[in-house]
Design a protein around this nucleic acid. Structure first.
Lengths: 146, 146
DNA sequence: TATTGTTATACTCTATAACTATA
DNA sequence: TATAGTTATAGAGTATAACAATA
């Protein structure tokens, strides 16, 4: 049955289009994927140590140094003294960084509104359920290794 | 309505899981995303000039030089003389490159079979239709700029 | 003149290993 | 002794600009 192939191809098409849309947004704001990822995390957690960022983004501590350097240079974040540990920094959003997060959330919300506008309520429920099933299968696949 | 947000979040979750699965496959074969992309293209078109690869993958000619260098070193492709244009090369798959493409297609097919196994036929039809609608909206969004 | 691919140069993301300062 | 973050080093992917060979 090639129906499966069609479904996967369609899913991958949507995936690549979502990625392209995200890249457009990043270019508009003169940012890169990894930096946006870091900012997004910062937006949900608040001030964080670099070691925690490394663990959360699953990237080496050295890499965090570089990403934070770039975001300090572009004015999106600041390194502040850790209140109790003099080895560590707390990375915090500047006003400009906070404004970017707000814009990102707005874009995310607008995109969600736009993408599914033409789907009926029952279609939405079905889509959500199907995506959950697919996610579960994928989680299964990934879990078998690691 | 936060239903839209849920749908988009679920879609992005599936997206990131698909990416993780693809990365796992690439690591197993000791290849990178851009190199797999190039090989995949080569698998569907056959021998191609580097300039055509640059246009197809939407990267600079200089970049193609680097990717092909790497794939020559790993034994997946070969540079052959162009029959009529002495400036150009034809990049062609080696036996090892062809074997990789076959493995990639197999993995793709197995993944498709696995992902949607639990969906009924009508669920599949609905999912396909919904994904088409979403893709159309995205195409709309992208087309408005460029 | 225009095109093909390369050399030269530079930036970002990524990693590991060695090191400093602190815990 | 272990942890936080940096310097040192390296490699992949990306880009533009200048250049050689060929069309």
């Amino acid at each position: 049955m090639s129906r499966d192939q069609d479904l996967l191809d369609r899913l991958l098409l949507v995936t690549s289009m979502l990625a392209a849309d995200q890249e457009r947004f990043q270019r508009e704001h003169d940012l890169t994927g990894p930096r946006v990822h870091l900012l997004w995390h910062l937006g949900t957690t608040g001030a964080v140590r670099q070691a925690d960022l490394a663990a959360a983004l699953r990237v080496s501590p050295r890499n965090i140094t570089g990403l934070v350097d770039g975001l300090v240079a572009s004015g999106h974040v600041r390194r502040e003294q850790h209140p109790t540990d003099r080895r560590a920094f707390l990375v915090t959003l500047t006003a400009s960084g906070t404004a970017f997060i707000a814009a990102l959330r707005r874009q995310h919300r607008d995109l969600a509104r736009d993408l599914f506008a033409e789907l009926t309520d029952s279609r939405r429920a079905d889509l959500l359920a199907s995506l959950d099933l697919v996610a579960a299968r994928l989680a299964n696949l990934m879990g078998e290794e690691t």
